[in-house]
Design a binder for these strands. Sequence first.
DNA 1: TTTT
DNA 2: TTTT
Lengths: 170, 170, 170, 170
Amino acid sequence: MASRGVNKVILVGNLGADPETRYMPSGGAVTNINVATSEQWKDKQTGQPQERTEWHRVVFFNRLAEIAGEYLRKGSKVYVEGSLRTRKWQGQDGQDRYTTEIVANEMQMLDSRGAGQGQGGYAPPPPQSQGDYGQAPAPAPAPQKAPSGGGGQSSPPASDFPDFDDDIPF
Amino acid sequence: MASRGVNKVILVGNLGADPETRYMPSGGAVTNINVATSEQWKDKQTGQPQERTEWHRVVFFNRLAEIAGEYLRKGSKVYVEGSLRTRKWQGQDGQDRYTTEIVANEMQMLDSRGAGQGQGGYAPPPPQSQGDYGQAPAPAPAPQKAPSGGGGQSSPPASDFPDFDDDIPF
Amino acid sequence: MASRGVNKVILVGNLGADPETRYMPSGGAVTNINVATSEQWKDKQTGQPQERTEWHRVVFFNRLAEIAGEYLRKGSKVYVEGSLRTRKWQGQDGQDRYTTEIVANEMQMLDSRGAGQGQGGYAPPPPQSQGDYGQAPAPAPAPQKAPSGGGGQSSPPASDFPDFDDDIPF
Amino acid sequence: MASRGVNKVILVGNLGADPETRYMPSGGAVTNINVATSEQWKDKQTGQPQERTEWHRVVFFNRLAEIAGEYLRKGSKVYVEGSLRTRKWQGQDGQDRYTTEIVANEMQMLDSRGAGQGQGGYAPPPPQSQGDYGQAPAPAPAPQKAPSGGGGQSSPPASDFPDFDDDIPF
DNA sequence: TTTT
DNA sequence: TTTT
């Protein structure tokens, strides 16, 4: 894998929901998570504490997807390293839409026990595995379904999002 | 500035067009650039060389915006460090759209002379300045116009993009 | 603060001992910690699991030094971002020695409660503060005492290390 | 390759001298470079411009070592990503010494032509290759000779450095 | 000297 | 939708 340029993202944050894992026709796993990072500061005028949460859509492939899907849970704190990828897809209105994701190539669980306090879901002891075997099927990854949420005002694209079965080019 | 979580992006790439600078009501500068990073690899089946270019929308504020606007040019190679921010805006059809940008907090010109091979635009000697003074007016940055059209087929969202005069909340 | 070049370190690891805090003549705090990161892999020949631990000497200044000294403990998991600095000092034999440290400019505690399971030391609730106010007194930081340890085979320079009261140029 | 913790370094700087390449008994290449990064600032008291140069010892293995050795030259601007490793060795006085290096796992040439203004050494067109094939023979890399002497007063450890033929454990 |  |  050679390249010209550097395209690197580093995140430490918490999962807003349990991971969603799907499988590509090839059999390879694809896992999506949403990771929140937040920034806090004091308003210079009023001195009031402010907060802004940023949500990041992260996608894992293959072995890393399996590990993420198995060990991460809603609330888990995670370190993710990857690269930015903007995908184009069509809304139901036929218009082009764009979604930017972080394609992860490294992941580390940062919770002591390896699991979040997800809603009842048991998470087995974590392997802390990561590495290059989790690499995307280089520049031609698989489709993903929308995050189940969609709600909040600062949330990422959701509603009209391409589905796993949709015929969208990547 | 305190925070919980890490939200960091590092790019090294080239500008697809000259920077665009605007000014906020406060008088602060806002500069946008589009940065290309590319990945090359060999197809495992055919052995054919492949390439995928990723375009990154980068926004600078205040002093860093002035420096970027003054010294960067189409073709300039640049190092950018910043954080991801996804903004919501409304398309002309009233639908919600999302755009992910890198809000830069550090910039370094990597061309020996400090200028790209821009189309005629003269770029004065580079200061290599960067630093925290370029910080965004924390979590409430200014509107931006669309990239003038990065040209290529893999260029970033453009057409229906919110304009500087549009009434969009950030 | 301007610069030419990029000098950046990102660590996620655990403290091998409680932080050590001192004060500069100026009154500014200086805190040192040792952070372990480890790598695990399987021997390709024997298939035996292997591990290598790397120890990193991290130094904080001013406000960040106070926070690190107050909230971190032996065993704490921490995110550190900073830059490399190699200091020259004289051994008791009059010979030059060099020590490489990470001068931190950002720190995040990654333990849920903000404290490690240090040996009895109580750590109050963490502020998760970080930021640029923790910056070093640019390129002329203060002396530090040796890490109290020194023991292990993979440990960093210790024995003959310059003391806080020593007259060493930085 | 699994791990617990993150140990990451990112450098953008210039080579202080031509690379030095050696070969391990296994036949694998090992290349060392010294990279300068510098920081500039204004003295708060006097307003005088100040500068501090930091020198980084970087080591490449295998394929990446061959590329670095072939295409980099004194003065080349380079992007390096890697991890910190502190090696212990014995001075001629029998005392323990420690040297911290960056073990590179990615490298990008940032000069337009791919070569520095080295003293006469011709450097062929650059491939911009990088990647994981350049990985170190995990946690048990090869000995290296001293940098030929970076010259300047702020140059890295040199004199008493272990030689390729010395019997030093890694 | 940490952590799993 | 997370976390403090």
